[in-house]
Simulated assay, not measured.
Amino acid sequence: MKKAVAKKSDVKRRQIAPLITPSDLNAKATKDIAGAMNGVLADVFALYLKTKNFHWHMSGPHFRDYHLLLDDQAVQIYAMTDLIAERIRKVGGTTLRSIGHIARLQRILDNDADYVEPNDMLAELREDNKILCARLREAHGVCDEHHDIGTTSLIEVWIDETEQRTWFLFEASRHSDSTGR
């Protein structure tokens, strides 16, 4: 009898909220984790598009090296998007639905300038990666608070990748900016 009631309750819940994925996390944890990770996802999409924008509009004596560097970084950044969205769904949340949704959540600013100097591109991307790293650390704290080991372990890898991108952008731009900061 208990199983039949539970099954009926589950069916009713799914009719009301068909995208709720079963999880051992409580509703607050799901909401907090999905909120933090959707913010990360918005920044990842913004950083991906900016990285590709600068890749497409690179010019100057270091064109080939910078063009290839930014393409490699864009591939790495884009690879995060599906993993983040699927992780949000696994814990019972819903993900971003549109460019407008991204725009409302992103902290990484767009750059719509007609022309950006190559070193300014590298410096801006370096700072944007630092912003992403900070947001990943914030999200890690939220996930850790709710004992979401699956998400925290992924975030730790993404922090390492983001720090590596920051380092590479710093080193690539050192020749004209001795401080890199």
Rank of each mutant, 00 (worst) to 15 (best):
Y78H: 12
L136F: 02
G39W: 02
I33E: 01
G180I: 00
S153Q: 13
S98C: 06
L70F: 08
R135E: 13
T30L: 03
I33D: 01
A113T: 06
D10V: 05
L41Y: 05
A79Y: 06
L69Q: 00
N53Q: 11
R97L: 07
A36P: 11
S23L: 03
E117P: 03
D148K: 04
G150C: 04
L83Y: 15
A123Q: 06
E86P: 00
K12I: 08
G35E: 04
E156V: 02
H55P: 11
V5N: 01
A34R: 02
C143M: 03
M121Q: 09
D43V: 10
I131D: 10
K3N: 14
F63S: 02
P61V: 15
K3P: 04
Q164P: 04
L136S: 01
H147D: 15
T162D: 04
T162R: 06
V157T: 14
R174V: 08
L109M: 14
S173R: 14
I108L: 09
T51V: 13
Y48N: 08
N38K: 05
R174E: 09
E161V: 04
F170G: 08
I108K: 00
T95N: 08
Q15C: 05
L47P: 00
I108T: 10
A172W: 03
H140Q: 12
K7D: 11
